[in-house]
């Protein structure tokens, strides 16, 4: 019996393993292999060990991008998740009229491709004739340049918030719906108001879902690519080729044609993401343990 079960298990798992190996392990291994070489226009490819990694660790462009995504992570993620949690709680409280429609409306931006979203916001931000500038002009105020070198990170945060508040809200809202009604009833019997229920029952119950969205958001922040890549076309002087590490790796590979170096940058980035994600997870688990 047992042997048969094991065999069935293997048969069921094999398709996954094949795909996983072909599209994940092999490319990953090949990238690691590539990152150990240096390709020169004159002289071709030579093995160079960890040279590319040393170079990346001393590359100010790589660190500038890292710094930007860390700021992004520390500022944008709390704002976005704060809104998502608040909205999920509000919708779940059942006190919002037309809750279903509101839920849809908040979620819709997630359905808009990030390319379209960025282009749309790019027009709104437009320095000379964008909608925001026009509104400021109408009000007789000096319009801020939302696409300058100093503001573009904030502008990007805004776009990403707009895109993902709805998505995270849905994740959290779904988690809230799984809380059994009896608990609420018991709380009400005990005389707890809606605020108290939200603070004492719903938020603690949301912990795993919040952690999930936090991890997703950390990964998303480090991988920021689409938005800056598109904003580059709208404001090339504000968004450099190294705005985020991902964008930098892309430009190094395809504009500078240094594929090996790009592989090393990508690997470093992947490692940083892993470390940060694990650290957050471990920290959260430790705190979550009952005292």
């Amino acid at each position: 019996m047992r042997a048969g079960q094991t065999r069935t298990a293997w048969i069921l798992v094999i398709p996954f393993l094949v795909v996983f190996t072909a599209f994940f392990i092999v490319p990953l291994g090949y990238s690691a292999y590539l990152s150990m070489f240096t390709s020169k226009l004159v002289g071709g490819e030579v093995f160079s060990g960890f040279d590319n990694y040393t170079r990346a660790l001393h590359d100010p462009a790589f660190w500038a991008g890292m710094r930007r995504v860390v700021i992004f992570l520390l500022v944008q993620v709390p704002i976005m998740l704060g809104f998502s949690i608040a909205l999920a709680l509000a919708l779940d409280s059942g006190r919002v009229r037309g809750g279903r429609v509101v839920r849809m409306l908040i979620f819709v931006p997630y359905a808009v491709p990030s390319v379209v979203a960025t282009l749309m916001w790019g027009y709104l931000y437009g320095v000379d004739n964008g909608l925001i500038t026009q509104l400021f002009d109408k009000a007789g105020l000096d319009a801020p340049n939302l696409l300058s070198e100093h503001t573009v990170l904030g502008s990007t945060m805004n776009i990403v918030c707009w895109e993902f508040i709805g998505y995270n809200m849905i994740v959290l809202y779904a988690a809230l719906r799984t809380i059994p009604n009896e608990i609420y009833e018991a709380a009400e019997v005990d005389g707890a108001g809606q605020w108290r229920i939200a603070l004492r029952i719903k938020l603690p119950a949301l912990r795993p879902a919040i952690l999930l969205t936090v991890i997703f958001s950390i990964i998303g922040s480090f991988q920021l690519f689409n938005e800056p890549n598109l904003l580059f076309n709208i404001a090339p002087d504000a968004v450099g080729t190294d705005f985020t590490p991902n964008l930098y790796a892309y430009n190094v590979a395809f504009k500078n044609q240094e594929i090996n170096y790009a592989a090393a940058i990508a690997f470093l980035l992947g490692m940083v993401i892993m470390i940060v994600s694990f650290a957050v997870q471990i920290a959260a688990n430790r705190k979550g343990r009952p005292a």
Binding site: F24, P27, L28, S31, L34, I215, I219, F222, Q223, N246, A249, Y250, A253, I259, A262, A263, A266, F267, L269, G270, M271, I273, M274, S277, F278
Partner: peptide, 12 residues
């Protein structure tokens, strides 16, 4: 988290 690196890599 692992896939994060892989995705960027596969581009290259």
């Amino acid at each position: 988290a692992m896939a994060a690196g892989a995705l960027a890599l596969s581009v290259t």
